[in-house]
């Protein structure tokens, strides 16, 4: 795994959240036991405040210093995990494994931005069975 760039600042929090209409992604997936859970929300943001993503956007100035990928799920029946895979262009930068706990759970991963990180990015959400749940695309700008 290539994690030389950028410096990763990873924060994990467990949050009990409720779905936010309009930003929910209705991807329904199954946990390892075969039970179904649902991706409610997946957004890129500049920060997490009060367990909520703040300054949601798809282009972030490198001066923002740090950005986060926030995801929330419901219908989780058993403790499982997901992965956030961060790519700059098609180069895998880092993979972060995040735990999901029943019944609803929100979690996020963050990266520290540097000058060399400018360009198009994407983050993929993968479940425990290595199935892609969703991809979110954004850019790091000047």
């Amino acid at each position: 795994m290539r994690v030389h760039l950028p410096t990763i600042g990873l924060c994990l929090i467990g949050l009990l959240v409720s779905a936010i209409p309009g930003q929910a992604a209705n991807d329904v997936v199954a946990d390892p036991a075969g039970q179904v859970f649902r991706l409610v929300r997946a957004v890129m943001c500049e920060s997490i405040e009060a367990y909520e993503p703040r300054y949601i956007a798809v282009a972030f100035p490198v001066t923002a210093g740090r950005i986060s990928f926030y995801t929330s799920f419901d219908g989780v029946t058993d403790t499982t995990f997901i992965e956030h895979k961060w790519y700059r262009r098609d180069e895998l930068i880092t993979v972060k494994r995040l735990t999901l706990r029943p019944p609803n759970w929100a979690t996020f991963s963050s990266i520290q931005l540097r000058e060399a990180d400018k360009g198009p990015w994407r983050v993929e959400i993968w479940d425990a069975r290595s199935e892609l749940i969703q991809t979110l695309r954004f850019s790091v700008i000047e």
């Binding site: 100035p61 400018k118 360009g119 198009p120 695309r137 850019s139 700008i141």
Partner: peptide, 11 residues
Amino acid sequence: LPIQVDWVGSL
């Protein structure tokens, strides 16, 4: 393949 916009500059 999906298409992604390559944004540059600053808002």
